[in-house]
Design a binder for these strands. Structure first.
Lengths: 305, 305
DNA sequence: TGCATTCATGATCCTAGAGTCAGGTTACTG
DNA sequence: CAGTAACCTGACTCTAGGATCATGAATGCA
């Protein structure tokens, strides 16, 4: 018997179905993958069934009124993702286009830690296209471990166990305020006492520690706005002239002529890691040396100690 | 942009085309892959072109009036083979069928070294199906290094450099002859002098050394037939009652009541190796320990020293 | 209990791409 | 130089499987 005749003997396998299944698996359920399109919904449901028929195993199970992907399904999805990546890579490389490298991290991390260094990153990684994917830290971890992302940047405590990892250092925080707020040698305490402040919406890990700091230092700033992310908060600082505590890396956002920042006597314990999917590194031909050079580059200057 | 949309944006990719390309790459050229069917021939030619269009790179080049696969083509073929193997594996495992393990070697090696030990091999490898693939030693080497075979057994000097390898020991050779030929304590020399002989067709490495031995020992047997392989030669010995020099492992072929063998005072220098594709071992979940246990098992008794 | 969400399924249409046939062209070979 | 082996191409047909629409069933929620 010829090679793989067995695989194609009974029909039911197609690139389209594999692709659809991958989309479902990444979305988590059909409705989300179909994005409200009822045609896609019915097709996805059908194609899922057809694939299950082909492989002779349940790739999904009903839970409540929705489905979830089984363990076997996740294995298959991982395979498909790797296969498609390889084909895609091959095509990109062959057509002379540079390899794409996907880095996932929180939007603020991307903007303040990575964006200002893309050129230097390319010096380390070679002629590549950096794809910067903003996502929440749970998604970063998941993305790296299932291979959807090549690199991720996140807090040490959120890093997936099996990934390769490089320490980037602790994030430093600083008080950002317009030049005027610091007049006549006023210190941090004085800014906190007098200036209008912005802060993050309550909820995150950061917020709690920030409150602790305020209590401990007996600072009670006059808050005039709360923002949903550091990025928004930074914009608030820049356009509305409020003061705020931001990651020190946010400095790249501001015009030094109008704004001053001062490191806080406080280390919010967030040790950042660069993590990577080792299978992807191998596939992309990135040597461990380049990856650790990347880590060093990202850690270098700008708020990480 | 969603994952892999880019890959499917322009059409031209299909499982069928990938499969066809793999067949062409394994056969080496279109005609051979098409096996004389002119329809397949034209389709293969076309699909090859379509794939090249899709990937934007020459996967084949004309050399003389046939084609050969380019370096890039071989890379793609390797990828496709791995992908299909994984899908096939997944399906087999999911449907509860045991994993198949492909072992390639010369037909005589398979029959005399492996076949008598399949049960014990399964004790080492677990609940698997052993697929025994007869092929010439160059094909064994190629098959193992490109992943078409999981294991191969061949001469040390033919083993591919990058494969994992385990020494099996040197092959011993023996003179096989019907009981009658050995009457009254006649030695090897006497059998050579008096009995009808079979030997291999000239051409192989073995043949040359065999002639050297005969000259050196001043033996000039009366040859009545030449066979194309050790297997044929063994059959000749069993059914026609001629004598012949065979690998000692051939003993399993004969009824000890009718035939006797005597090791030759001669070691034709063929050190045999078990080689394996390490990627496949990993994929199949075969630990190095199991592989070396397999090597020990194959080497154990029966002509290997 | 009514209503929305989510998935399943039957029926039908449409299309990319497989399959087939009938010539080519090119390069090797006796 | 004729013959042939190996591949290419154009012009079809055929079909698996994708696309669409309509509807039903199960679940959960207000």
């Amino acid at each position: 018997m010829n090679a793989f005749d067995r695989l194609f003997l009974d029909s039911g396998l197609s690139l389209d179905r594999l692709r659809t299944f991958l989309e479902i698996a990444e979305a988590g359920n059909i409705a989300k993958a179909a994005k409200g399109d009822s045609n896609r919904q019915s097709q996805f449901s059908r194609q899922l069934k057809e694939l299950e028929g082909f492989f002779g195993v349940a790739l999904s199970r009903k839970v409540g009124r929705r489905i979830e992907i089984t363990e076997e399904g996740h294995r298959l999805a991982g395979m498909i993702r790797r296969h498609f990546s390889e084909l895609d890579d091959f095509r990109e490389v062959m057509s002379g286009r540079p390899t794409a490298i996907r880095i996932g991290a929180a939007a603020s991390v991307l903007e303040w830690m990575v964006l200002p260094k893309v050129k230097r990153c390319r010096e380390v990684l070679g002629e590549v296209v950096l794809e910067l994917e903003p996502c929440r830290s749970a998604d970063v971890a998941r993305g790296v471990s299932d291979g959807r992302l090549d690199f991720g940047i996140l807090r040490e405590d959120a890093a997936p166990a099996e990934a390769k990892r490089w320490k980037l250092g602790r994030i430093g925080y600083a008080l950002f305020a317009p030049k005027a707020a610091w007049r006549s040698g006023a210190g941090i305490a004085s800014v906190f006492a007098r200036h209008d402040f912005g802060e993050l919406l309550p909820g995150g890990q950061f917020h709690d520690r920030y409150r602790d700091l305020l209590v401990q230092q007996k600072w009670s700033p006059r808050v005039i706005a709360r923002a949903g992310s550091f990025l928004q908060l930074a914009k608030l600082v820049r356009t509305e002239g409020v003061a705020a505590v931001l990651p020190a890396t946010a400095a790249v956002e501001f015009d030094a002529a109008k704004l001053r920042s001062q490191p806080l006597p406080w280390k919010h314990e967030r040790s950042m890691m660069l993590v990577a999917n080792s299978r992807n590194l191998e596939r992309l031909g990135i040597r461990p040396g380049s990856a650790s050079a990347l880590a060093k580059l990202l850690a270098w200057e700008g708020g990480l100690l």
